[in-house]
């Protein structure tokens, strides 16, 4: 279990790169890397050489998140002005522009089947669900406010929803908020199930284990990564090692490793079996806002890849083996 640097693109964007995801391979092409930046552009890169495939404009303010449909045909990018642009990956044609003012847009993810796009709705304290066929808002999953709100809660930041994650079976949706609580929803019944406690600082990244739909990982500004049994409502483990906020996180497709990116400028690889950090990459010179493992599939591509993006405007690609 290790990472080996393959390629870095300095000044991949004109400004900080804030979002990254892989667009799965289609029959006609391999997987592509999708990045979004403060410079208001979204760029497509061909792996492994990280050749720039296309630059999408059209966003105002910075691009805060990107998401790819499991089919690899369409993708979505969202910016600080709270709008989402859904576009055709290969033609860059705009398919839809989604807005649910005053709900902002933070992290977003397509469900495993590709029928719903879940969007973390910021101050609206909810997850917005968009139908990917009609691009209509189909539901809003609201995070209930705790009955006795803590005195330390600053108004407005209470249940500000930042991050969202689908379970691999598509039945559950989890979201993380500014105050550190994680909420779990039953999607089919559109019902809030319970909170997961343990963090007291913003949870900026959530991801389910691809091999166990009960296991949820969370990354928080408290520099910790927690490991929850999201069904059993219990904390299985906590991993510390970053010296500052953990901004981003992704699980390897085999479910055995976790990659985290932090404002301490490092990317760490964690062995989930040992629950310990096995490697620290320090090639970035500023906050690492995104890490993403390449999904398996495509024309005979077996090798594991991890991409990371950073405030230093660069993209890095690693071999994961």
């Amino acid at each position: 279990m290790k990472l080996a640097g393959l390629k870095s693109v300095e000044n991949a964007h004109e400004e900080s790169v804030w979002a990254v995801t892989w667009i799965p391979a289609t029959e006609t092409r391999g997987a592509l890397l999708l990045t979004g930046s403060l410079d208001e552009t979204v760029k497509l890169w061909r792996s492994d050489e990280l050749v720039l495939q296309g630059t999408n404009t059209g966003h105002c303010l910075g691009v805060v998140s990107v998401a790819a449909h499991p089919s690899g045909v369409i993708a979505a990018s969202a910016s600080l002005d709270s709008s989402i642009r859904v576009f055709d990956v290969d033609t860059n044609a705009t398919i839809a522009t989604l807005e649910a003012i005053p709900s902002e847009v933070w992290k977003m993810q397509f469900d495993p089947k590709g029928t719903i796009l879940a969007v973390a709705g910021g101050g609206s304290a909810s997850i917005k669900l968009w139908d990917t066929a009609t691009w209509q808002l189909i539901d809003t999953l609201s995070v209930p406010r705790p009955e006795s709100s803590k005195p330390s809660d600053k108004s407005g930041s209470g249940k500000f929803v930042l991050s969202v994650a689908w379970s691999p079976d598509g039945k559950r949706l989890a979201c993380g908020s500014m105050d550190g609580t994680i909420s779990v929803f039953d999607v089919a019944r559109a019902k809030f199930l319970h909170h997961l406690d343990g963090h007291y600082m913003p949870v900026r990244s959530l991801v389910y284990s691809p091999i166990d739909p009960r296991v949820l990982y969370s990354a928080s500004d408290d520099a910790h990564v927690h490991m929850y049994d999201a069904e059993g409502k219990s904390l299985i483990g906590a991993m510390s090692g970053h010296s500052s906020w953990v901004l981003s996180m992704d699980v390897s497709p085999d479910g055995g490793a976790l990659a985290t990116g932090s404002s301490d400028r490092t990317v760490r690889l964690w062995d989930l079996g040992m629950r310990a950090a096995v490697q620290t990459m320090s090639n970035h010179t500023d906050q690492v806002w995104g890490v993403a493992f390449r999904p398996p599939g495509g024309a005979g591509v077996r090798a594991g890849r991890l991409a990371s993006v950073s405030d230093d405007k660069s993209i890095s690609l690693y071999d994961y083996s």
């Binding site: 406690d197 343990g198 007291y200 409502k233 219990s234 904390l235």
Partner: peptide, 10 residues
């Protein structure tokens, strides 16, 4: 890092 009920985890 024992399994703790998340409410107690605080």
């Amino acid at each position: 890092s024992s399994v703790v009920d998340s409410e107690e985890s605080s």
